[in-house]
């Protein structure tokens, strides 16, 4: 069983310069990624941009990639998926007990009934927060995330601090997100190690029973469906 070791070695000698250059650049980016008004190292940034453009041309020239399909793929990810889809699912569950039951029993089918399905959401499991239990989702091994309902994952979700700490110290992680839960509330962290994709069904905020489904959807934040946040308490005007 040397395949793993081979995989590590096979290309790195050839590409040491590449990895070194990219690493140096990213150290810089990491310390600065919060404030984009700071000056960037434009030469290296451009280097990657140029590299990506050149790779794209090569792959199109070779006929592996259709240029129009490439644009369509990107456009699809930018416009068809995102947390507003998930918010609609949550709002429906809050207002329709039958849908809620279906959603918890067969998340994939219930979500598809609202028009959201497909890549990275083929096997959906919706987990319900209750007064006794809080759920939180992570992927410690990579960046698995339910694309059809939440879109592409935010950077922090894919970062080493979240991936390493969510399973070991969820209380501290939640505090960093400004979420303080009663001490007696159990926390259940779901590590997305397989192709099951998890979405949290947050508790409906008290006093919102008279709101319409679309008003309720506006209370549902992305983080409340990952479990690192709670829904807004009232409609933002």
């Amino acid at each position: 069983m040397v395949v793993g070791a081979l995989n590590c070695l096979l290309f790195s000698p050839l590409r040491i310069g590449y990895y070194a250059a990219m690493t140096e650049k990213d150290n810089f980016e990491h310390t600065h990624h919060h404030d984009h008004s700071h000056d960037h190292d434009h030469s290296r940034l451009d280097e990657t941009a140029v590299r990506v453009r050149a790779l794209e041309s090569l792959l199109v020239d070779k006929g592996y990639v259709d240029a129009a399909a490439l644009d369509a793929l990107i456009e699809n990810c930018e416009t068809r998926i995102g947390p507003r889809n998930g918010a609609q699912v949550v709002a429906r569950a809050w207002t329709d007990a039958k849908f809620r039951k279906w959603l918890l029993e067969d998340g994939t089918a219930a979500i598809a009934s609202l028009g959201f399905s497909g890549r990275q959401g083929e096997h959906m499991k919706v987990v319900e927060n209750t007064p006794e239990l809080h759920n939180m989702v992570v992927c410690t091994l990579c960046s698995c995330y339910p694309w059809p309902v939440l879109g592409l994952p935010p950077t922090w979700y894919k970062s080493a601090p979240y991936r390493s700490r969510a399973v070991r110290e969820p209380v501290a992680v939640l505090q960093e997100f400004g979420v303080e839960l009663p001490a007696e509330k159990l926390i259940r962290v779901w590590d997305s190690t397989a192709e099951m994709r998890y979405m949290v069904l947050p508790e409906q905020p008290a006093g919102t029973e008279s709101l319409s489904e679309s008003e309720l959807a506006s209370l549902v934040t992305r983080d409340s469906m990952i479990g690192t946040g709670l829904p807004l308490a009232s409609v933002q005007k």
Partner: peptide, 10 residues
């Protein structure tokens, strides 16, 4: 551990 919760792994 400070939390009495659990971790769910597939």
């Amino acid at each position: 551990t400070e939390n009495s919760g659990s971790v769910m792994v597939d």
